[in-house]
């Protein structure tokens, strides 16, 4: 049996201070208190492609952007009930992030699956930003418990429940794993490297199919993202 107790846990306030971000190491577990907001394709497209001002001043609000859509329902009194919360795969948002960091002061992305290390080197490291990945996936009920209040749901009519910008007050919100640090190291890629060493052997003795397929790559050590 493995010793998951060896894994270090830290609790931080959001917005997260630069000194806290600098101290984080990949593989640590983080729990958050404070304010975070959701933003994914719909929000990025509206702000960065259509040029609309964000519905709230993100620079003063918080520096934590969550790639997520909550399972939320509007009750008859107009309030929101959030049940479960699970992140969505982040690699799809790669092209938006350099400008998002520059224009909003965002320093922390929470999402699913991380980004590529070239994204970390080209966008995250220059912006002093890091990536926290949700766990599982997904610990929807645990993260849902960590949401204490929906502070606002911006652009709900324009973008719908899944794509709206939700401003969330959180407490002991986690677990999240530090996937990238300020040097741009990636926990996923370091694990992949270890896994990749053994992959070729798995195919030993298995003859190739008689009809091949075209694909982006036939190198099994590569990721398809």
């Amino acid at each position: 049996m493995a010793a998951s107790g060896k894994i270090q846990k830290v609790r931080l306030n959001a917005p997260i201070a630069d000194s806290d971000i600098a101290a984080l190491e990949i593989g640590q577990v983080v729990y958050l208190d404070g304010l975070i907001y959701t933003g994914r394709e719909g929000v990025y497209n509206r702000v960065l492609a259509e040029g609309k001002a964000p519905p709230v001043d993100l620079k003063t609000l918080t520096n934590v952007n969550f790639h997520c859509s909550p399972a939320a329902a509007k009750d008859t009194d107009g309030s929101f009930r959030v049940g479960a919360v699970t992140a969505t795969a982040s690699f799809r948002f790669s092209k938006w992030l350099p400008r998002w960091f520059a224009e909003t002061g965002c320093k922390v992305i929470i999402g699913k699956g991380g980004m590529s290390s070239s994204d970390y080197q080209s966008a995250f490291v220059p912006a002093g930003a890091i990536y926290l990945t949700t766990v599982g996936y997904g610990t929807g009920a645990l993260l849902g418990r960590g949401i204490k209040k929906v502070e606002a749901a911006h652009w709900l009519d324009e973008l719908g429940v899944a794509q709206a910008m939700w401003v969330l007050r959180v407490e002991n919100f986690g677990p999240l794993l530090v996937e990238s640090d300020l040097q741009g190291r990636s926990l996923f890629e370091e694990n992949n490297a270890e896994v990749n060493d053994k992959i070729a052997k798995l195919y030993d003795g298995l003859k190739a199919p008689s009809l091949s397929r075209y694909g982006e790559t036939d190198d099994k050590t590569k990721e398809l993202i």
């Binding site: 399972a71 049940g83 479960a84 919360v85 997904g138 929807g140 009920a141 849902g144």
Partner: peptide, 10 residues
């Protein structure tokens, strides 16, 4: 315990 969905991605 909370009668919440296990995962928010339906």
């Amino acid at each position: 315990a909370d009668r919440r969905a296990m995962c928010a991605d339906t």
